[in-house]
Write a protein that binds this DNA or RNA. Structure first.
Lengths: 146, 146
DNA sequence: CATTAAGTCTACTTAATCAATAGGATGAAT
DNA sequence: ATTCATCCTATTGATTAAGTAGACTTAATG
């Protein structure tokens, strides 16, 4: 499971994506409408800013806005930024590799080989999951007949 | 990432699968060869026993053994038993469903729809990942030429 | 039937991580 | 100068992860 923090980050990003190119959006607006504790959201947005996904403007008329286009922001990047590895085992992580302490021979480890495939497929799926696609899915669900 | 506990469980199960139908295996043997803290492993094996994956024999000549065949034990079941949900969000979990507190309308949530697909694919992969297949992969890796 | 070899059970500990919260500092607009 | 809004540092409380301690139960066997 991803953390609540990561979920909040995704909620906030979808919110910003829906208002892309409409100027800065207030933290307070996002917090209220997405039901995220405001102070917590502040910290999350700062992380997203440090990573270059969003940017901000201070003072009156300020707020946050998406720096990339909605089709360029995917779930793999967001989850890795907030939560760390997507892989189920440290030894199959691409961005956060660590040896399994108890492992005798990594190269011939059948468990590792298996979970390498799982990670590969999961990352592929999460890379495809962009803000744009999430919004499109939402629209499709809203228009679906009973 | 799965917990170390779940990884240990998998290591222990692969160990038992390799010695399937060879009588009870000592906890101490598994702990030593798989490099798992023995007392911790005891607790893990008890959980696997309660779930009917393994069984045990007490006293001299006792130990643990697989109750099902290696092709009947898959990673989805083991991970769910030890760690809980495989899904990345509580609202898309099949076995451990919980509503996302902050969600306004689950039915039309694009995020949920996206992560539903991710869970579906992940579970399918992990269901296919049986002890038998892990051992076969290990053998294949060992025989691979340089 | 006492001894020894095993698994079983209950409780505890220690450290890390999660999910926030508090309160002030900084910077931009008017 | 004032107000608005983000930025920064520190702290907290709860939960979970990872492992340990020690006594108890059961089964074989000499």
């Amino acid at each position: 499971m991803i953390s609540k923090k990561a979920k909040y980050a995704i909620n906030a990003l979808v919110h910003l994506a829906k208002k892309h190119n409409q100027g800065p959006i207030l933290i307070s607006e996002i917090a209220e409408q997405e039901r995220i504790p405001q102070k917590f959201l502040e910290a999350i947005l700062l992380e997203l800013k440090r990573d270059g996904i969003v940017s901000s403007k201070k003072g009156k008329g300020g707020g946050y806005y998406l720096l990339r286009n909605p089709e360029e922001v995917n779930m793999a990047d967001v989850i890795r930024l907030i939560d760390g590895p997507i892989a189920l085992l440290p030894c199959v992580s691409y961005k956060f590799y660590e040896r399994c302490e108890e492992c005798k021979d990594e190269v011939t480890c059948g468990i590792r080989d298996m979970f390498l495939e799982v990670r590969h497929q999961t990352v592929a799926l999460l890379k495809e999951a962009t803000l744009e696609k999430i919004i499109k899915r939402e629209q499709a669900l809203c228009q679906k007949p009973i």
